[in-house]
Simulated scan of single mutants.
Amino acid sequence: MKRSEFIKSFILFSSILFIKPSRLFASINSVKIGKKAPNFLLNGYNKNSPNKKQWSLDDFSKKWLVLYFYPKDFSSGCTLEAKNFQDNLSKYNKINASIVGISADSEEEHESFCTSENLGYTLLSDANSVISKSYDSWLDPYSKRNTFLINPEGIVVYKWIGVRPIGHAQEVLKELTKQQKIYA
């Protein structure tokens, strides 16, 4: 490697290492805690409601909503995250909470993924990325791994940005229980 190429590579690598996370996630500020969650109307799949084709934020009014964005059905991290939410689904249901996943995958892919992984909650298709973008959760061509906790009045009360799938469902459940006590 030539000295000039090495210097260019070093500068590029250094700038990536030392960039402030706030600059990396600068757009995250548009979804604010304490403000109304952006509405959505998306097609999707839920094995418990096979005839229902569209869901909106209003479908979850009077319930707590865990709205999580993820990149791709059947990928390892997304499968782990989905299964962890499924493993804890009865705990969420007991405390009046719904789980909804959103990605750019098609309804057919969601149905296949739900069937394969035995998921009992709703997955929505955001193929044109409009909703992912409204939640600052889009990095072309995929949804970014972010989660939003929305109270029964449709207010965002907590958010996780750049989620790690391992243990996330339990982390969300813990925060949900805490938030329910605050809003009781």
Rank of each mutant, 00 (worst) to 15 (best):
S4K: 11
I7Q: 02
S9R: 14
L12G: 05
L12P: 00
F13Y: 12
S14K: 03
S15V: 01
L17K: 11
L17Q: 06
F18G: 02
F18N: 06
I19E: 05
I19D: 03
S22H: 04
L24C: 06
A26L: 07
V31T: 10
G34P: 12
K36N: 11
A37K: 00
F40H: 03
F40W: 02
L42H: 01
L42T: 00
L42V: 00
K47N: 09
P50T: 05
N51Y: 12
N51G: 08
K53S: 15
Q54W: 03
W55T: 05
L57R: 00
D59I: 06
F60H: 11
K62Y: 05
K63C: 00
W64Q: 06
L65E: 02
L65S: 05
F69E: 01
P71D: 06
D73Y: 03
T79I: 03
T79V: 04
L80E: 11
N84L: 04
F85V: 07
D87E: 11
S90H: 15
S90M: 06
K91S: 14
Y92P: 04
Y92M: 11
N96Q: 12
A97T: 12
I99Y: 04
G101Y: 00
I102G: 03
S103P: 12
D105Y: 03
S106M: 08
E108M: 11
E111C: 04
E111H: 08
T115I: 06
N118P: 02
Y121G: 10
L123K: 10
A127S: 14
A127Q: 14
N128E: 12
N128V: 07
N128S: 11
V130A: 13
V130H: 10
S132I: 00
S132P: 00
Y135S: 04
W138P: 00
D140V: 05
R145G: 04
T147I: 13
F148E: 01
I150T: 01
I150Y: 08
P152Q: 10
E153K: 15
V156C: 05
V157R: 11
V157D: 05
Y158I: 08
W160F: 14
G162I: 13
V163T: 14
R164K: 15
G167P: 01
E171K: 10
V172P: 02
L176Q: 07
Y183I: 14
A184Y: 00
